[in-house]
């Protein structure tokens, strides 16, 4: 397509949607995220349907500890904010600032992942293996799927940060960073429901 972007005045105010390719990616990524909604809904539904099927194994109330979940939630929420700051910097053509905040987002994500691995290891020590009960299987697959999304996101942003370490903000990489930030917010949204539906409801009974 022979679309032309006016580049004489500098970086367009919405660099992520300035080209047709960027616009396509933008719409397509939202469509993809909406599909992810129904996929996560299926996992949530499975967990909620099976969460009382403990088959004599450990129960939610025995396992979950509020402080750990609280710290993980705070980390992930903060990483959501840092990626917002990074994207705002991107729109203003402040490459160094964007890079800095993206790296912070990355390390917060790593910290979150570390806590999640620690948590899983603890549960396994406590006697909740993957095939202990229906509760265990559905818990690990729901939270594990979220964890897998985090891993993919971290790999993604790491690749982008290394690839574009010196590139500055261009019409090609702006959509990529923007899509990553959408993805990261989406992971955060899913986590909000996980800490509510899985952890808090598990601790609070019901």
């Amino acid at each position: 397509m022979s679309e032309t972007v006016d580049v004489s005045k500098g970086l367009p105010a919405h660099p992520e949607r300035a080209t047709l390719e960027g616009k396509n990616k933008f719409v397509g990524f939202w469509v993809f995220l909406s599909g992810e909604v129904t996929m996560f809904a299926t996992f949530f539904g499975t967990y909620l349907g099976l969460r009382n099927g403990t088959a004599g194994g450990p129960e939610a109330a025995d396992l979950f500890h509020m402080p750990l979940v609280f710290i993980m939630t705070m980390i992930l929420l903060t990483s959501s904010l840092t990626s917002v700051i990074a994207i705002t910097a991107m729109k203003k053509n402040q490459f160094k600032k964007m890079k800095l905040w993206m790296w912070i987002t990355f390390f917060l994500g790593v910290a979150f992942l570390g806590f999640e691995i620690y948590e899983f290891v603890e549960y396994v020590h406590y006697g909740l293996g993957f095939s202990t009960s229906a509760f265990a299987s559905s818990f690990y697959s729901l939270v594990g799927l979220h964890g897998a999304h985090v891993v993919f996101g971290l790999g993604w942003v790491l690749l982008l940060l290394i690839r574009y370490n010196r590139a500055g903000i261009t019409l090609t990489n702006a959509p990529k960073f923007y899509m990553f930030s959408l993805y990261w917010h989406f992971i955060d949204v899913v986590w909000v429901f996980i800490f509510t539906v899985v952890y808090l409801m598990g601790i609070g009974g019901g």
Binding site: S2, L11, K92, T170, L171
Partner: peptide, 14 residues
Amino acid sequence: MADHLSEPFEKSAM
């Protein structure tokens, strides 16, 4: 056609 897809910008057009 000057595509200017992979080059950084001096300033923002905001």
